[in-house]
Amino acid sequence: MKGLSLPVPSIIVAFCAAVVMYLGGSGFWMSLAILLVWLATLWLARPEPTVETIDRDDGSVSRQAMVELVEPFGLPVLMLDGQRIAAANAAAREELGAHIVGQDARVALRHPEAIGLLQKPQGRALVRGLTGARSIWQVSRVPIDERFSLIEMVNRTAEADISRAHTDFVANASHELRTPLASIIGYIETLADPDAKVDAATAAKFHATVLREARRLQSLVEDLMSLSRIEAEKHELPRDRIDLGQMVGTIASETAMTVGEDRLKVETVEAVVMGDRQQLDQLVRNLIDNAFKYGDSQAPVSVSVGVVQGEAELIVADRGEGIHPDHLPYLTRRFYRTDPGRSRTAGGTGLGLAIVKHIVERHRGKLDIASTLGKGTTVTVRIPLVLQQNVAADPSLS
């Protein structure tokens, strides 16, 4: 009987006792009967095999050995003994709960697709909603032998989200490009039609509309290309030393020449950061442009650059209508608009804040948008300052 642990000392004691009784005159059959009863008692009192030690033909496998086998995996992994979960690594316990060890796998996973997979000796299934409403897991079952098998879980939720975001982006971009193109084509076809009999005033109005839509289309294409370049470079740290205060002062002076000095309040200090000059210039211009587009036309826009806890802090504030709190979490999404009609009338592409967000992320900064209805909107950007120890460590930065 392989793998059976016999109580050898107790058996020896039982034989010795039987021999002593026989020699003492108890008789052979009485001594044998007592020996058999004693051995039967030892057999019935033997410990039952538990999940800690599982008898197998090739020896015994401890539960600890199972845990040590699956624990190093980064992916959630379960070891099944039949249909029961004998071991689960840390990643699996985090996703499904520590209570699953010892449970029937069909109860622990409790999903039709997963249960269907567990009814097969091996296979793979895509399970939606296993750990959350939007979660997507690829669950695979791999047999070890006739008794044991492994369940591996791969989280495909992020891939699905990226694919969905890509599809949404293409659809939104196509719609945004189609709208001005349709307008341009419609007006040009009318002007080119000899039977339309368009008078000079109407023709001039059509030409102005075509020019406006063409410029809007140009702005949209430029913003799309800009966003694409920023995303392509997002893992490359900028290496130019830039005084953000000086840059903002220069841009503000240029803007004031167009809108009037009384419309722009500027306050800056020296704040040197590591940055991409073109992208930071675009960030500042986008924020100031948004403040004038959506702020109160009679109230000034304030722009300031300060230093707070080792970071350069850029603040752009307007005194417009403000933004409802429900919209704030989505403002940096591509093509998201709180008021599509007003945005298009103002010449917005719906990509300005998405570009700002990606520029801030590339510069390892933080972006915050706060707004109060009826009072205005404040956008705050914080970017780490260039520290003296960083310059000393890398002479190329000086």
Score class of each variant (00 low, 15 high):
370 A>T: 13
391 V>E: 14
378 T>W: 01
352 G>N: 09
353 L>Q: 07
332 T>F: 00
384 P>Q: 13
380 T>I: 12
344 R>E: 13
386 V>N: 02
355 I>T: 09
334 R>N: 11
348 G>Y: 01
388 Q>S: 13
392 A>M: 13
337 R>M: 15
384 P>S: 11
364 R>P: 01
339 D>Q: 12
363 H>Q: 08
368 D>C: 03
368 D>E: 14
356 V>M: 01
350 G>M: 06
363 H>M: 07
347 G>C: 09
335 F>K: 08
390 N>W: 08
346 A>P: 01
341 G>S: 12
357 K>F: 10
343 S>F: 05
357 K>A: 15
375 K>V: 02
358 H>E: 14
390 N>M: 13
384 P>E: 13
360 V>C: 10
374 G>A: 11
391 V>L: 15
355 I>C: 06
344 R>A: 09
333 R>M: 14
339 D>L: 02
383 I>E: 12
388 Q>R: 12
378 T>C: 08
362 R>Y: 02
379 V>E: 03
369 I>L: 13
377 T>D: 04
364 R>M: 11
331 L>F: 01
394 D>R: 11
370 A>F: 02
332 T>W: 00
333 R>L: 13
339 D>N: 14
364 R>W: 02
343 S>K: 01
377 T>G: 06
391 V>I: 15
332 T>R: 04
331 L>M: 14
338 T>W: 10
378 T>Y: 01
386 V>A: 10
359 I>K: 03
366 K>H: 12
336 Y>G: 07
390 N>G: 13
378 T>G: 00
385 L>D: 10
354 A>V: 02
376 G>C: 05
393 A>G: 08
353 L>V: 04
366 K>F: 07
362 R>M: 12
343 S>I: 00
372 T>A: 11
374 G>W: 08
374 G>M: 08
382 R>L: 08
367 L>Y: 02
372 T>I: 11
394 D>S: 08
371 S>W: 07
394 D>P: 02
390 N>P: 00
388 Q>M: 10
392 A>F: 09
375 K>W: 03
388 Q>G: 05
359 I>T: 02
373 L>N: 03
347 G>E: 04
378 T>M: 12
387 L>D: 09
336 Y>S: 07
358 H>Y: 07
333 R>T: 06
337 R>Q: 14
378 T>Q: 15
374 G>K: 08
338 T>V: 15
336 Y>F: 15
